[in-house]
Design a protein around this nucleic acid. Structure first.
Lengths: 238, 238
DNA sequence: CGCGTCATTGAGTTCGGTCAATCGCTGTGG
DNA sequence: CCACAGCGATTGACCGAACTCAATGACGCG
């Protein structure tokens, strides 16, 4: 609990990933004690209820954050990709679990020290604030999907969100890689079977292409947006 | 855009409500330009898509925040009560609408000036950060309701949350005042009729009491928690 | 009084869940 | 090299929880 956080000043920028490994970063604050951690697929980073002692930064791979009900149902509250932080909250216990979805590499910081340094640095706080505000905005969007859209609309909105989140793809129609059906299902409050049905239905309608290994290509963006907005756009009849 | 925010240093404390009217507050920073605003029931504070120019603080009354889909469906993403802030985000446009649920009194600050002052004040930023983190935590809880619980569970969780949020009620079993059925429905992703049915069902089961004017008293907390957790607790049969 | 709003209750429908069988791919070991 | 096990995805048949539509009741207000 006495070690000091590093290289924090690039927080929020996409370059944070790079910055956290660099040397000048180490110089900005005392002792750069971010430790590395490598995770195998489906290995847990922490479990819901664990004391919150660290803050994590994803270097590579992908992480799912989820909450469990006593009934056994699982809600995936979000996916985390390279360049993003995990566990920025201020609680003493984690309220959700974090698990690697594939081979994943992290940096971790002692959260007490992290907060100690950060809480006196307005510029950094501002970045953290923005990061949390963005998480909040995504949470609202998810609520909209889960509460107000039908299954087709939820999936459409999800596909568009995945596309928007891919850093490189400003140009259109790259092949995106989706989480497993079960993960999408638990994210959107649906079932694995429903996701599968919707996806093949979207493919039949010529709206998306389905590739192997969870690959998709979005073809008809307008149709997806229409579905996400709940507009049951009439389809060509001939 | 040039006026300066006031009395910000008590942000996040329950005492913020009081503080914002007080004189010493005005002295802490330059010119206390928070302006007062009175709203009639169902009057809008702002609409989704409006440019974000102000930050609001609820003095009295209640506010619903909601997003609309083009299909006409409405998601109430949260309710705001006295002592809470609205529109802390950093976007240039509001992504949801805010509407008074009853006669409501607000303070408003020019957000540019607010941020200008705030962004150099680590202590204040920390409070804002915590406030947003709490909103995020509530959003997760809502997602859980809307995605993973059945109707009865959603309503049970909602009732418990309302109770937990009432400031005075550390002692048990006060009469809470609920939003209208339609508001609860649009919050939980259900319909007005379903809310009504569940509520009378909970009353029949002796778990709650229903009073006039949206009043409820929670009787059997254990049963509510069980329902929220998705545990279909067996009921006494004799 | 009559109107509007909100809540309750009922009857019928539907979307998505559940259960279950099958397919296809990958990796492993004989 | 092939057989087989394991896992994820797909597809089908059936079911049920919540929605929709509709009628009625309770209240407050002009």
């Amino acid at each position: 609990m006495t070690d000091l956080p590093p290289c924090i000043r690039h927080i929020g920028a996409e370059s944070a990933a790079l910055a956290c490994g660099s040397a000048d970063c180490a110089a900005s604050y005392r002792m750069p004690t971010c430790s590395r951690r490598r995770l195998a697929p489906s290995q847990h980073i922490f479990l819901q209820g664990d004391p919150q002692r660290h803050i994590y930064f994803v270097k590579s791979g992908a992480v799912r954050l989820y909450e469990l009900l006593r009934s056994g149902r699982r809600q995936i509250i979000g996916f985390k990709f390279p360049g993003e932080f995990i566990a920025l909250g201020y609680d003493d216990k984690h309220r959700y679990s974090a698990q690697a979805m594939k081979s994943t590499e992290l940096r971790s910081f002692a959260s007490a020290a992290f907060h100690a340094v950060v809480s006196s640095q307005a510029r950094i706080l501002l970045k953290l604030y923005e990061a949390v505000a963005q998480d909040l905005s995504r949470a609202h969007e998810l609520t909209l999907s889960v509460g107000q859209r039908d299954a087709r609309g939820s999936v459409a909105a999800f596909l568009l969100q995945v596309e928007a989140r891919v850093p490189g793809a400003n140009g259109k129609s790259a092949v995106l890689s989706l989480p497993a059906r079960g993960d999408i299902a638990d994210h959107l409050g649906l079932t694995l079977e429903t996701i599968s049905r919707i996806l093949t239905q979207l493919k039949r309608d010529g709206i998306i292409e389905l590739h192997e290994r969870g690959g998709v290509r979005l073809i008809d963006h307008a149709a997806l947006k229409a579905a996400a907005d709940g507009v049951t756009q009439e389809r060509r009849l001939f």
